[in-house]
Design a protein around this nucleic acid. Structure first.
Length: 413
RNA sequence: GCGGAUGUAGCUCAGUUGGCAGAGCACCUGGUUGUGGCCCAGGUGGCCGUGGGUUCAAAUCCCAUCAUUCGCCCCA
């Protein structure tokens, strides 16, 4: 019989790693709530069209990375490759309130890519979306919040990259300008991919990691120098706010995001020491997206954090702590022991109880490994007296205590 | 989709020129009739990824295949 295994690019998370993910989720909730965000839970499966319309039909994500399949009635469904589209869909479907709405979410996303370090086919993101604010103060707040969150996870050594992508008024002109510039040095472009990109997505040439391409585009016109006055003013306010707030950042004119809906402010947080997949969070403004999905013309800005990548940066040494381990030395006492343990748990104590009467030595060993503060020993003698022997695992002191006084005794020890 | 590396015990990995399948950690039992960590003794645990080939003989050499992994692409 062949073994059934996980699907390629899908992973089981055991402790302590699973606990790191819980910690990230709790921290996110704690921090985001302070900024007025509330949780939105949306489905993992959506109509394919949602993603085609929001992310961009020409992007790699939509063209070759989605888990798309027909349901039993032939409708095309897709496992979400990112969170924003579904959250926008939900907001539109249930009617947006006037003013600003702030939502966060977290959960699994799916992309059919070749797995590698920090990249799974099922991966997890924490997302924040702020709708209804076109002002640059909203951009700055979102960035402050993201950095606050990453700081609360105890991460350091991260770099915030910032850029503006212009808007639908000024980006087309820049795109032409850049294309013309790139075609001027077409022969010298070293990498194959960039030759193709000049045609399909010229902005991506700026983002190429090939050092030859990078030096060739060193003097290319930048979006930043070619945005319209409105975009320039917007970006300057964002930069000014970050500076005043003491948030360091790097202006990176090569920062071009892969999803079509981004405009104006974009940002990305990178780490230098987790291998090739260095981007741990990214986001930006997407003012046209809600309208594009059939909703009102409401502006938006948000970001996504890659939990797998954050996990690589967090130290996973969380010690196990329990209040007790209940060792049972006599078969007669097994039932009573289990009931006693449950009573302790109802009284907010945490701990394990033996289901089988084994040697004192082996159970003390087990108690030690469980990290229990006290080992409660219930053998034939204690069973007869209705008591329990309480051993302090740190000092080794032990004391016999009647079972009905146990709860009070554990508190005072 | 393209390249490179690796598959041997639960985990991390040795395994020489082709010659009985190994270590450390973990786990279990005992040393102590009912007392952990340290120490000591013993023990469980393997289709050597899978299928074929060469050979008297294959974990080892050859072919295929699957899986994992690191890069590219792309993205969080």
């Amino acid at each position: 019989m062949s073994k059934i295994t996980t699907i390629k690019g899908f992973a089981d998370l055991f402790p302590p790693e699973s606990e790191v993910y819980s910690l990230m989720e709790e921290t996110a909730r704690d921090v985001f709530t302070r900024y007025g965000y509330r949780e939105l839970r949306v489905p993992v499966l959506e109509h394919t069209e949602l993603f085609a319309r929001s992310i961009g039909a020409e992007t790699d994500v939509v063209q070759k990375e989605m888990y798309t399949f027909p349901d039993r009635k032939g409708r095309s469904l897709t496992l979400r490759p990112e969170a924003t589209a579904g959250m926008m869909r939900a907001c539109i479907e249930h009617g947006l309130q006037e003013g600003v709405s702030k939502y966060f979410s977290h959960g699994p996303m799916f992309r059919y890519e070749r797995p590698q370090k920090g990249r799974m086919r099922q991966f997890h993101q924490i997302d924040c979306e702020c709708l209804g604010a076109h002002e640059p103060q909203a951009d700055a707040e979102v960035i402050f919040m993201l950095m606050h969150f990453l700081g609360a996870l105890g991460l350091s050594g991260l770099e915030l990259n910032l850029n503006t992508l212009g808007c639908k008024a000024c980006r087309p002109a820049y795109r032409e300008l850049l294309t013309a510039y790139l075609q001027g040095l077409d022969q010298e472009l070293r990498c194959e991919d960039c030759r193709r990109r000049v045609q399909t997505n010229p902005l991506r040439v700026l983002d190429c990691k090939n050092s030859g391409c990078r030096s060739l585009t060193e003097n290319a016109p930048t979006m930043h120098d070619n945005v319209c006055p409105d975009c320039r003013d917007h970006f300057n306010v964002v930069r000014g706010l970050l500076e005043q707030g003491g948030q360091k950042f790097v202006l990176n004119h090569r920062l071009v995001r892969g999803l079509d809906y981004y405009m104006r402010t974009t940002f990305e947080v990178v780490s230098t020491n987790i291998g090739a997949q260095s981007s741990v969070a990214g986001g930006g403004r997407y003012d046209g997206l809600v309208a594009q999905l059939g909703g009102p013309d409401v502006p938006g800005i948000g970001f996504a954090c890659g939990m797998e990548r954050l996990a690589m940066l967090m130290n996973t040494t969380q010690e196990r702590r329990q209040d007790f381990f209940l060792a049972v030395l006599d078969e007669k006492a097994l039932d009573q022991a289990m009931l006693l343990a449950c009573a302790l748990r109802r009284d907010n104590k945490s701990g394990d109880v033996s289901f089988a009467a084994k040697s004192a030595k082996s159970q003390l060993r087990q108690a030690g490994k469980s990290g229990a503060r006290h080992c409660l020993i219930l053998g034939g003698d204690e069973f007869a007296k209705g008591s329990v022997l309480v051993k302090d695992m740190r000092t080794g002191e032990q004391k016999e205590i009647l079972q009905e006084e146990l709860i009070k005794a554990l508190d005072s020890l």
